[in-house]
Design a protein around this nucleic acid. Structure first.
Length: 289
DNA sequence: GGTACTACCTGGAGGC
DNA sequence: TGCCTCCAGGTAGTAC
């Protein structure tokens, strides 16, 4: 379940590996993985001959700046991963898109030239890729970017900003945190972790939090996301970084997927409930309704 | 406009 | 062992 820390881990890996490599070909094994343009052939035609100049992140979206002004957008959704691998590595049954690359300025047949590949794997096929032409704005093609709230690590994301957002709705706070308009990049794992760190019950109405609770929640969001990035993200079933390695955050999770285990603070058994159609994990003693 | 619900999708777990 | 059902969850679309 790639959320902000997992996507950030992938972004760092991509910037370390792919810059200066030129796309010389590709293969689209699942056409619906390409959200734009409509025709996979048009997607490949637009990326071939360009090279990666920078990878950026916005919420859970990855955006590669390509030479010649185009951009490549990727959303991993639930089970997607971008792998930097040798071209002769066995293709898995969940491989959806392959981009063949070569070191810029080197011919394929030169001795010592590596044959690498950027591979998009996705078990549940929810992940998407977009090609943003140089004459289009990013938001007009990747429409999901239009509604994103502030980045949690942006200086503008203050407790006051969060309080302003929360005061507008009486929905449960957990549901509001999952809404990408509130703050970009939080998913089910870090929503639960942030609420635990903020000592707030997931069912509490968003507009019922006082300023002190909002401040605690703000700190909880920053801390849980920072810890997640420091540990290379969270791995349950499928997340892996560009090198194919798993993240370690889950080893230190406070509540997520710890139903029935004792709370690390008070020893009360961690509970689980459904909220907004999502599994929600919390400590009934530490988190106040 | 705000909110809740559903579809999309595949593989693992559990029940029979 | 094999079949069936349920569950997981981010986003977009739809209904109220």
């Amino acid at each position: 379940m790639p959320e902000l820390p997992e996507v950030e881990t992938v972004r760092i890996g991509l910037n370390q590996n792919t810059l200066g490599w030129q796309i010389e070909g590709g293969e689209i094994l699942l056409p619906r993985a390409i959200a734009y343009p409509d025709r996979p052939e048009a997607f490949l035609a637009a990326v071939i001959g360009t090279d990666f100049t920078e990878w950026q992140r916005r919420g859970k979206y990855l955006i590669a700046k390509l030479s010649q002004g185009n951009q490549l957008g990727v959303h991993l959704r639930m089970t997607g991963s971008l792998l930097w691998c040798d071209r002769d590595a066995p293709v898995g049954k969940h491989t959806r898109v392959r981009l063949f690359v070569k070191e810029k300025g080197k011919r394929k047949k030169e001795k010592g030239v590596s044959q690498k590949e950027l591979r998009f794997d996705d078990q549940r096929t929810f992940g998407k890729m977009w090609l943003v032409p140089s004459d289009r704005s990013t938001e007009s093609v990747i429409t999901g970017l239009q509604k994103l709230g502030l980045e949690p690590f942006a200086p503008e994301f203050t407790p006051q900003h969060l309080e302003s957002k929360l005061s507008r709705t009486g929905r449960p706070i957990k549901t509001v945190l999952l809404d990408q308009e509130t703050v970009a990049g939080i998913g089910n794992i870090y929503a639960d972790e942030s609420l635990f760190l903020g000592k707030i019950h997931p069912q509490k109405a968003a507009n019922s939090l006082n300023s002190e609770q909002v401040k605690d929640l703000h700190q909880g969001i920053i801390r849980s996301l920072s810890d997640g990035i420091a540990k290379g993200g969270t791995t349950f079933s499928s997340f892996q970084n560009v090198a194919g390695l798993k993240g370690n955050y889950i080893d230190t999770a406070w509540v997520f997927r710890r139903t029935g285990q004792p709370c690390n603070i008070c020893g009360t058994v961690i509970s689980r409930m459904k909220l907004g159609g999502r599994s929600t994990h919390f400590c009934p003693q530490c988190q106040i309704l």
